[in-house]
């Protein structure tokens, strides 16, 4: 592990100043991803800025009936918060589908957004990786890519974003609040993560020195018509091969509004607003779900080991929409897919 120094600011302005003050400084909160990356010499900060003493642990009601989750709210505190569970059960379900109880007790809301890909090549500093060392190449394209992306890839990178929480946040039109040297701003969750293009080293659209302070989830009312369906190699404590966050509002037996985001298949939670809009007014039936799945997966391309994701994702989308319309969301303790 690289040697670094350490500071522990107690206010957001002090943290932002500390972040700007030293090149290579990095923020640490729960540390569940960063400490692992330090051990692999993938993260090489000059200084760690411990933000755990900042006052960012509250879950606040917003004027529109939504919730604002402080950046330091743990995954467990978010998932088990009564307001989150009642207003945004899709979010609670997605969080509980991810990681383990121990990790959820430490991992934070802001950190979840900023976690890095679990691509094996990214994690091994002895092999090339354009995300870790731009310009060195991407062995994953022709290598071991079972877990990797089929959408939003580029010739430079086929990594996936590993989060479950962010997939639900994308479907819920969440907004990221950040503070930086130039002040505060808000970034739509759907604009927060990047597709790699020719800059796979940039996971997101944060500017240098910006700190996430909160994630806001605006009011929405999908009732029981939601599901987070996660498919993986073992029943728990594994990253998604394919996951689907789906929410549907029905009106007089027809689809009024539909939101679907995919995890495990792209460098960011994957949505297609145009495809969602095309389903408005449609009857909630399998043929419509299949047509929607084909549109959402348009342009998907496998790289060998992960070719199976194309068919799996299509079936998962259809199943998730069936669950959401029926009002029978996927249980995260009984993993049988109904």
């Amino acid at each position: 592990m690289i040697r670094f120094d350490y500071v522990r600011p107690t206010s957001v302005p002090d943290a932002v100043k500390a972040l700007a003050a030293k090149p290579g400084a990095q923020v640490i909160a729960g540390g569940t991803n960063l400490v692992d990356l330090l051990k692999y010499d993938v993260a090489k900060p000059s200084r760690l800025i411990d933000i755990n003493r900042l006052p960012l642990r509250a879950i606040e009601d917003t004027a529109d009936g939504g919730l604002k989750l402080g950046a330091l709210v743990t995954n467990a505190d978010a998932a088990y918060d009564v307001r989150v569970a009642q207003r945004f059960p899709l979010l609670a379900s997605a969080i509980l589908a991810g990681a383990s109880a121990q990790l959820r007790n430490a991992a934070t809301t802001g950190g979840n957004l900023l976690q890095r890909t679990r691509c094996l090549y990214f994690y091994d500093p002895h092999v090339p990786c354009n995300k870790r060392e731009p310009g060195t190449g991407c062995p994953a394209r022709t290598g071991v890519n079972r877990n990797l992306a089929v959408l939003g890839t580029s010739e430079h990178c086929i990594a996936t974003h590993p989060s479950d929480m962010c997939v639900a946040l994308a479907a819920l039109n969440a907004v990221v609040h950040v503070t930086g040297p130039a002040g505060e701003r808000q970034i739509a969750l759907s604009d927060f993560h990047r597709v790699p293009g020719d800059r796979p080293d940039l996971d997101n659209t944060l500017e240098r020195g910006e700190l996430i302070t909160a994630v806001e989830v605006p009011f929405s009312d999908f009732g029981r018509h939601y599901t987070y369906l996660k498919l993986r190699d073992r029943l728990s404590y594994a990253f998604a091969l394919v996951s689907v966050a789906a929410a549907v509002r029905l009106d007089a037996g027809r689809i009024d509004e539909l939101r679907v985001a995919l995890g495990g298949v792209a460098p960011k939670p994957w949505r297609n607003l145009e495809a969602e809009g095309l389903l408005a007014g449609a009857a909630p039936e399998r043929r419509a779900y299949e047509a929607f799945a084909d549109r959402l997966l348009a342009g998907a391309q496998g790289f060998g080991d992960n070719d199976f994701k194309l068919g799996l994702a299509r079936r998962a989308i259809v199943r998730a929409l069936t669950q959401a319309v029926a009002g029978t969301p996927q249980s995260q303790s009984d993993k049988r897919v109904a």
Binding site: Y6, R8, I28, G31, T32, V35, D36, L48, D50, N52, A76, A101, Q102, L103, N105, A106
Partner: peptide, 14 residues
């Protein structure tokens, strides 16, 4: 709260 001690830096546990 249960946590993984391998992923916590001791200095953050002050």
């Amino acid at each position: 709260m249960r946590v993984n001690a391998c992923l916590l830096l001791a200095v953050t546990c002050d």
